[in-house]
Nucleic acid binder design. Structure first.
Length: 489
RNA sequence: GGCGGCGUAGCCAAGUGGUAAGGCAGUGGUCUGCAAAACCAUUAUUCAGCGGUUCAAAUCCGCUCGCCGCCUCCA
């Protein structure tokens, strides 16, 4: 079975057939570096991280390009506000971006090109377009002639007449057609400037991606991705530029992910309703954010809330707890004993990987894939719970294999990458730091309670236990004494 | 106005023609002096509403209602 991918351009899923056998060339639009990244950016990065990881797991050699836009109107404006240069500003936020990506455990792309480092390629592409009659110069600017490219609108499913009827397009008298867009902008005093055949200026927003993808991936490549908000105009314009210049099909599969919303409203800088990645990571484990993001299909909207993150934390704890419990199992069992595991359960465990792959092959349906992992965990837990004192070796082996498969599959999503026991300890440690209690105080209270229990003073014993619980410490009475742990969300 | 998407249990969320995955929360149970944790079991005769196609529909078609996004910078 092959992987099926939903292609924005065709509006349907189709089997992934790569240009070159076993290889995938992927270009993703990265950030415009002028501010901290928010959860929406995290979703974009995580979705494509998952896609890259999964494609590699499925045997593809993936060349992954993710660019930085380090020159544009917003950067110029913000730099002026902060009384700094565009270069300093964009470099600062690129560094922040890298820190955020590292904290989220996102694999670095093969290449991360910047617009400002590709001026020769950009200028060359614009010259190609002018030569082909697809671009024209007006004063210091160069515009793309949308009426000269007859596929214009085919990606976003629009046509030029409809878009003009929208009336939100401002009329610029210099342009031949209201929808024509800038390839090159003559610079105003004080703005970053590069020399060009059309005078000093800077590139328009869309041309950089056409130039850089062409340089690193060629005229034609397999997958181009980004957020849904990039479909129009950004990707529509990129496609027009690239196909106009080369005459070849620019991209085979266009992939666009949905937005992160807050209270059902799109998270965006202009609305001011965003949380930065660092704010969220300060409170929740990076893998919890991952689990949250992957708990819905990448094309659907995803509503951020604290409650939703806490759900994800609980889910992640369930997964890690299962793995930790399986690690505690004895290494050897009874070689003679027959398996005590029902056939249906055995089959469920044995087919975890197969079912996981089937879900992921279906347009990266991580929500369904995770459902299979949770179902597997449920069965593994059930079997483990009912294991006899001297379990059959066969059954121990099945449980261990099931846990290992679960971990391997989760790894292809960047989940369950930590040692289970250490992860759980670390999470508890993080919470303990926020509590007004030291381990010594807890131990002392337990000693006091143990004495009370020995004299069957249940009232006092329960009181001590309740007081600790109110502070977030759970006690576990066992044969070997009383252990404590921090209450996880 | 144009284009696109969504509406599944208390909440989140899979499921694109064959009789409702999974997670969180809740409830019952195992364990325990009682608990907690963990685990198990259980929770939608029904998929926004109304029609239609079909032996069969959450899934296809039509209409209605509600929500969201893009058309301007945006992941």
């Amino acid at each position: 079975m092959s992987i099926e991918i939903y292609n924005t351009k065709t509006g349907q899923k189709s089997p992934l057939v790569t240009l070159e056998e076993g290889k995938i060339k992927l270009y993703v639009c990265g950030i415009t570096a002028y501010d901290y990244c928010h959860i929406g950016h995290a979703r974009s990065a995580l979705v494509f991280d998952m896609i890259v990881r999964y494609l590699r797991y499925r045997g593809y050699e993936v060349t992954f390009i993710r660019n930085f836009t380090d020159i544009d109107d917003k950067i110029i404006k913000r730099a002026q506000e902060q009384n700094t240069t565009c270069e300093e500003l964009s470099n600062r936020f690129i560094t922040m971006f890298h820190e955020d990506m590292a904290s989220l455990g996102i694999l670095p792309p093969t290449i991360e090109p910047k617009a400002t480092e590709h001026l020769p390629e950009i200028i060359g592409l614009i010259e190609d377009l002018i030569r082909k009659g697809l671009a024209y110069q007006v004063a210091a600017d160069v515009y793309f002639r949308v009426t000269g490219f007859n596929g214009y609108g085919s990606l976003s499913g629009r046509n030029l007449d409809e878009m003009q009827a929208g009336a939100r397009v401002s009329i610029n008298e210099k342009k031949e057609h209201p929808m024509d867009f800038a390839l090159w902008k003559g610079s105003k005093p004080g703005e970053p400037t590069w020399e060009s055949p059309w005078g000093p200026g800077r590139p328009g927003w869309h041309i950089e991606c056409s130039a850089m993808s062409r340089k690193y991936l060629g005229n034609s490549f397999d997958i181009h991705g980004g957020g849904k908000d990039l479909i129009f105009p950004h990707h529509e314009n990129e496609m027009a530029q690239s196909e106009g210049a080369t005459g070849e099909e620019f991209v085979k599969y266009w992939m666009h992910h949905g937005f992160v919303t807050i209270k059902e409203e799109k998270m965006s800088k202009s609305l001011g309703n965003f949380l930065t990645i660092r704010e969220v990571i300060a409170r929740f484990a990076p893998e919890a954010l991952r689990l949250f993001i992957f708990s819905t299909h990448y094309r659907n909207p995803l509503d951020y809330s604290e409650a939703a993150l806490l759900d994800a934390v609980a889910g992640l704890n369930r997964l890690y707890t299962c793995l930790a419990e399986i690690e505690q199992l004895p290494a050897t069992g009874n070689d003679q004993a027959a398996s005590a595991i029902p056939k249906t359960d055995r089959e469920k465990i044995e087919t975890i990987a197969e079912r996981f792959r089937k879900a992921m092959d279906n347009d990266f349906n991580s929500a369904q894939a995770l459902g299979h992992l949770f179902e597997g965990v449920k069965i593994i837990n059930k079997i483990r719970q009912h294991l006899p004192g001297k379990p059959a070796s066969l059954d121990l082996q099945l449980l261990k294999q099931g846990a290992e498969t679960t971990r391997d599959m989760a790894n292809t999503l960047g989940l369950l990458t930590e040692n289970p026991t250490l992860y759980l300890q670390k999470e508890q440690g993080k919470i303990l730091k926020t509590l007004s209690l030291t381990p010594e105080e807890i131990e002392n209270a337990i000693t006091e309670r143990t004495t009370a229990r020995e004299t069957k003073n249940w009232t006092l014993a329960d009181e001590i236990r309740d007081q600790l619980l109110a502070k977030g410490i759970e006690l576990k009475d066992g044969p070997a004494g009383t252990a404590w742990q921090v209450k996880l969300p």
